[in-house]
Write a protein that binds this DNA or RNA. Structure first.
Lengths: 216, 216
DNA sequence: GTCAACCAGTTCTCTAGAGAACTAGACTTA
DNA sequence: TAAGTCTAGTTCTCTAGAGAACTGGTTGAC
C-alpha cells in the first residue's frame, strides 16, 4: 500500500487533482490498484495471468483448460546467429546469441520441441545459470534474473515437416508433418528479445487466441 | 467534428472538467479523437485497420503482406442449430440460425473453406440479401446492414482431416490433413454473434497473431 | 504572390476545494 | 461471544477557473 492521495499531493507539492490524474495513469498502465475507502496498492505482478498470457497451446481433450506442459531443457550454449534470427534481431545485433533447446511433455508424451534464441549481451550470465532450476516458464525467469520484461509476442503458425532434431525429440520420423510456430518476443520498447522456433506433434496440438477487445 | 468542450459543458449543464473527463473516456474507448487547437472528432471506423483486424492468414510466400483472398459465397440457408454451434451461442439461443458456406481463393487456388453460422434473430433479413454483393469481408457488412459490431473473436487452431464438403471445395481427398480453425466472434457486450468452422489447405496456410501490448 | 505576424478558438495541464460513497477497524450492546 | 453502530480515513465525482500550448485561418507588409 502506498500513501493516500492527500499525503502524496502534499509531499510532492502538487494539487490533489493533479496527483489523482497521475495515479489514474498508473492504474491505466496496470501498475497500481485503487480501492475506494481502502487505499492504493502496488499491483502484484499478476503471475497467474502472466503465466498464461503468452502460452496459448491447449489440450485437445479439454480445450478450456490452458496447458502448461512439463518442461525439460536439453541444452544451452552460445552459438553464432543463424540468418533468420539475425534478421529478426535487426541490424545492431551482435554475432552471437544463446540457444536453448527444450522439450515439453504432456502426461509423459512429447508435445513440443523448441529452439530458443536469446539476445546478447542482454542475457549475459545465463550460461552460468542451472537450466534445470528454471521451471516451466521462461518469462518470469527473464524478469527476475535479468530484469527483462516481455510485453508482446508475434506468433506465426504454419505446417512444416520435422527436422532431424525435432523428429528425434518428438519421437517422429524425419520429414513427418508437424505444427510449426515461429515466435518473436519483444520488450515494451519493441526491441526483439527472443526468437523461437517450435515444432509440435500435430495430433495433440491446439492453439487458441482471442483477438480484439476482451469482453469484461 | 463535435462542439467544443466549452459548448458541450454549457449545453449539458455540467462543469468543464466533468465534460472533459467524459470526453477522455470516449477517447480511451476509441470512439473520439481530440486534437489540441483543432477540435474533437468522431473517429471514422478505421476500416483499413478493421479489415485486417480479424483476418490473420498470411501468404506463405511473403508473410509480411496480409492476405485477403478472393471470396466466393457458395450458399446461404436457414438451418437447425448444430450441437456445437448451439453450445457456443449459449442457452438462450433459438432453434435455427443462418448458415453460409464460402470458399476463399488465392491467385485462383482454393485456400480456405468456411462454414459460418449467424445468430437469429439478429440477422433477420440476411436471407433476402444477395450474397454475391457482399464483398470479401463480412464484418463491415454486419455493421452496415445490421448494426452489429464484432469487437472480439477467439480463434482455435488445430489439425484436422477434410470432411466431404471441405475436401470437395479445397480440391483434396476426403480425410486429407487440413488446418482447422474454429472462430467464436462476439459483440462488445460479449454476446456470441458468429460461429465459424474453417478448413484450410495445409501447404499454403499461415496464421499470424500478435499477443500482448503492441509496441508503438 | 509570398511570407510573417497576429488572432480567435481549441485542447491540455494544473490549482483549489466540497460533498458523496465506501471500507476497515474500534467500540458498544445484547 | 456475536451482532450492530460508529468513526476516521480513503477514493470517487463534480464544480470553478486560470494559464499554457497548439491550430487554422486571416490580415498585412513587402
Amino acid at each position: 500500500m502506498i500513501p493516500s492521495e492527500n499525503r502524496l499531493a502534499e509531499e510532492y507539492g502538487v494539487a490533489l487533482a493533479t496527483m489523482r490524474m497521475a495515479l489514474k495513469q498508473l492504474v491505466d498502465e496496470g501498475l497500481l490498484d485503487r480501492r475506494r475507502g481502502t487505499g492504493t496498492f502496488v499491483k502484484q505482478p499478476a503471475f497467474r495471468a502472466d503465466l498464461f498470457r503468452f502460452f496459448h497451446v491447449h489440450d485437445v481433450e479439454d480445450p478450456d483448460v490452458p496447458v502448461i506442459p512439463e518442461s525439460r531443457i536439453l541444452s544451452h550454449q552460445e552459438v553464432a546467429l543463424p540468418a533468420d534470427v539475425k534478421q529478426a534481431f535487426g541490424e545492431e545485433s551482435v554475432s552471437h546469441c544463446i540457444k536453448l533447446e527444450r522439450v515439453r511433455l504432456w502426461s509423459g508424451d512429447p508435445l513440443l520441441f523448441e529452439e530458443i534464441y536469446l539476445r546478447l549481451p542482454d542475457f549475459n550470465g545465463l550460461m552460468s545459470l542451472n537450466p534445470k532450476a528454471m521451471g516451466p516458464l521462461l518469462y518470469p525467469v527473464f524478469l527476475e534474473e535479468f530484469g527483462i520484461l516481455i510485453s508482446s509476442a508475434t506468433d506465426e503458425l504454419s505446417f512444416g515437416t520435422a527436422t532431424k532434431a525435432s523428429a528425434k525429440h518428438l519421437e517422429l520420423a524425419t520429414g513427418a508433418p508437424v505444427a510449426a510456430i515461429q515466435r518473436i518476443a519483444r520488450n515494451p520498447a519493441g526491441r526483439v528479445i527472443e526468437f523461437r522456433r517450435v515444432h509440435g506433434r500435430p495430433e495433440r496440438f491446439r492453439y487458441r487466441v482471442t483477438l480484439g477487445d476482451q469482453p469484461a
